[in-house]
Computed example of a mutant assay.
Amino acid sequence: MASYTDAQIAAWLRGLLAIAWADGDFSTAERATIIELTTTELAVRLDVTHFNPISSDELAASFGRNSQIGRNFLRTAMMVAVADGVYSPPEAELLREFHQVLNVDIQVLTALETTMISDSPPASGVTNTQKLDVLLPVREWLDGLELQDPRLARLLCKFIPSQCPFERDITLFGHKIVHIPPLCKLNPLYDQTVGLRFRALSYLADECGEDVSPYCS
């Protein structure tokens, strides 16, 4: 049933990790989580003890240039990059580099960067709703991700939380000093991310006949 090779799945995971840890933060707990994921869910060997981010040339060698698998990888990489509601310059630079080496149109990245990285206020007369509408091509592009391999579906079910991280207030001496909204309010692509997780669960249950209850808690 698998449509991707072990080498492609390993490259996919290394690429997502490169995006997720573009800021250089790679904790012991994260290493342990990825070790468990690669050995029990993906059945690929990946040394995360001495993790080296995948290079652009390695990605191109694994996926090919302007291929469907490359486009599907880039869709998941974009979702990982904006998962916390922050699209940082290092993430944007690496994602653009991946798009270029895989020979995939970067117009969706331009829309994403314009909306999420710019610190300048909207131009006079431009509403926040109009600014968010710039992301419509990005949403449509992300919705085109195809699920053809159960290992990829399991990977997405692990990477994407089953529930939106809850909002909370930070208090000091009984006084609220900051309010942290739920990530679903910060991430403008949250609906696409949740929709992808649902499709991954449905694919595993309906087409692969797997028990998806472990991913639903």
Rank of each mutant, 00 (worst) to 15 (best):
R75C: 01
V44H: 07
F63V: 12
N72Y: 02
H50A: 13
Q68E: 11
G85F: 04
R65V: 12
M79F: 05
G85M: 12
R45W: 01
G85D: 06
L42K: 02
V80G: 02
E58Q: 14
E58R: 11
M79I: 11
D84F: 04
T49G: 13
R45A: 12
V86R: 15
I69H: 14
Y87N: 06
V44A: 01
F73G: 01
L59H: 02
I69S: 14
P53C: 10
V82Q: 01
N72S: 12
I69K: 13
M78K: 03
R75L: 04
A77M: 03
G85A: 13
A83Q: 09
V44I: 15
Y87F: 15
Y87Q: 07
R65I: 03
V48N: 03
V82P: 00
V80I: 15
D84N: 15
T76A: 15
T49F: 02
Q68S: 15
L59M: 06
L46C: 01
L46W: 06
S55N: 08
T49W: 06
A60P: 04
R71Y: 00
F63A: 11
E58T: 09
N72D: 15
F51E: 00
F73K: 00
R71H: 01
D57T: 10
T76R: 05
F73S: 03
L74A: 08
G70N: 00
I54T: 13
I69E: 15
D84K: 11
R45G: 07
S55C: 03
F51W: 08
N66A: 15
A81Q: 03
L46I: 03
G70C: 02
R75E: 00
V44L: 07
V82F: 04
G64E: 07
V44C: 03
F73I: 05
I69Y: 00
G64K: 08
F51I: 07
N66H: 13
G70E: 02
P53G: 14
A83Y: 00
M78N: 11
V48E: 09
L46P: 04
R75D: 01
V48K: 02
G64R: 04
S56P: 03
D57Y: 10
A43K: 03
G70P: 14
Q68T: 12
